[in-house]
Design a protein around this nucleic acid. Sequence first.
RNA 1: UGGCCCAUGGUGUAACUGGCAACACGUCUGUUUUUGGUAUAGAAGAGUCUAGGUUCGAGCCCUAGUGGGCCAACCA
Length: 667
Amino acid sequence: MSEEAKSLNFIEHIIEEDLRNGMPKNHLRFRFPPEPNGYLHIGHTKAIGISFGLGEKYNAPVNLRFDDTNPTKEEQEYVDAIKHDISWLGYKWENELYSSDYFQQLYDWAILMIKDGKAYVDSQSSEAIAEQKGTPTQVGTNSPFRNRSTQENLDLFERMKNGEFESGTHVLRAKIDMEDPNMLMRDPIMYRVMHAHHHRTGNDWCIYPMYDWTHGESDYIEQISHSLCSLEFKPHRKLYDWFKEQVHDYSVDEYPLIPKQREFARLNLSYTIMSKRKLLKLVEDGVISGWDDPRMPTISGLRRRGYTPNSIRKFIKKVGVAKRENVIDVSLLEFCIREDLNKTAPRVMAVLDPIKLVITNYPENKEEWLVAENNPEDDNAGTRQVPFSREIYIEKDDFKEEAGNKFFRLKLGGEVRLKNAYIIKAENVVKDVNGNITEIHCTYSEDTTKKVKGTLHWVSIKHAIQAEVREYDRLFMDEAPDSHPDKNFMEFINPNSLKTINAFVEPSLADAKVGERFQFQRLGYFNVDDDSTANKLVFNKTVGLRDSWVKQKLKQNNTKNLQKPQQQQRKAINVIQQLGKKYTNLPEEKQQKVKAEIQKLAKDVTYNELEPLFGTAIKKAGTRIATIIVLKVLLNNGLKHNDAINEFVEKALEDKNELLVAEARTI
RNA sequence: UGGCCCAUGGUGUAACUGGCAACACGUCUGUUUUUGGUAUAGAAGAGUCUAGGUUCGAGCCCUAGUGGGCCAACCA
């Protein structure tokens, strides 16, 4: 079966149109241009997914280009981490490139621009330059150095390059227009003096090009066809195009194609932050253990947490691409990882919050190895054996001395199935001096065919292995922690985002390897953390299973407290309104049916409910027709005419919608 | 005293050149089940920000308004 024609996003529309207009398919070329100044996060995944996804879709090359023009912030460590993350996600780049590879070309072009009077050296302080730049609502003014002679500019620029000047003393600026409403066009800085060691070019340069000058020209040199970036670069497009025009004049023969920048809305995730600077702060302040802490929204964090590349790619596909600001609910990410792991993760049993259960009629020294299915979703997953004995652990939550019949778990006198084992019945409990239950005593029956409502997971105490389980909660307690102008995002940090648990797991897990993923049955998905050693197993909780029981409990609590009214029947007037909406679009037959229905419903409508509808917008003819129909019924039932009614009917009579006029006439 | 971008169920994205607003997540109901998971069947929820205009017909085109975002780093 062929894949159904999926609708295109706006970038794909643009590409399709370019192709239709004659762009050869083999001119398609994309790039992902990270700055190596931090780790990649889930937000970057969107940009990666877009550009690399397009590469896969059109079978076009995608370059990985490090935008490394600021040696003070960039490090090799980040380059390595970024490459690792992209590969892990399963994408392949055509070329590994660096903006710094183009420093010489950029410099040569800059010289040409100076010669053409399109760039000049400014020798003011950054403060002075900033001041002359104006504000978004106020134009800028020219620099006193704007009209230096070509000779002087050339000389100064050469000396900047040679390291004769200190940082901050001179810059090279493009000569564009200080009055442009777009501030980026007000003689933007192309080069600044920086005596810094660069992770690739070492000490070769002491002038470094700025983003706008570098980025577009790098695209141009690589002959990128579509340069895709996030929305905040939209204002840069004008400059991007301006620079391109200049260099294109110099190098048409060598580089014939002109790239096109297009912008999409970046990804935001609820309850998380996405700024590299802020993530770095969390790392530096030790709020979390590092860039790859499982609570971090970084790719390395998600990886350590147990997310699969597949789930992340699916997630990105699902969130789509558009231009409007968006906040994606974390539940979508969770859905994607559950969906993936459900099919692939072997099931095992683990008890996180144990309570001892003794099966009194099971022989003291007996033990059995029972057969357990590894994954009901995967026919090839096979089975394993789990040990059973007289004393086991179950979850504390799975037992209550007394409970209603909505509680499917174990209660005194109640029966429940032990997963992969027998059906047991709770007979009594042992308590300590404080009244806490220390043991549950049960009897078992070997008849496993009986129908019982609940099934519990368990581990045999004698055979269980201890393991550390790290359970995570969201790192921030606010839905949008960095969107409060008056509050710092650090204020929202959840102090309980990490819970370390001493758990008991079934012995088959003894040789689980770092990175392996499991479903702890009835609990969630877990993977073996990097900290795990041969003597000590450490698991991360990736995500819990969907749990309709907690919802059930929440609901019960709510109804207890609030006595929420049962979902009340919809009011007749609301139903009528909805019927009216579509009225004008319906075929005539159906209109008659709907009309009859409205007339029937109208009997339950009061005038007070109807009157507000008189104000319905003119263009909403359907609603007005429905209103007229109801009005007629009310009038027939003895309602008296008043000014509001007369006005409404008159307006209807004058309408150009014939249906509406016809209905109004009948009044 | 500006410029640019955006506005569709709770959330995200569709709707090709105008034709009964669709899909996914979430929510709610059944059914199945040795996971209160999965699967499966279904439901509720939108006049497409507002007001006008063009049109036989507007989410889509036009005008005005409203609301939100971005732009004043020798960052990217």
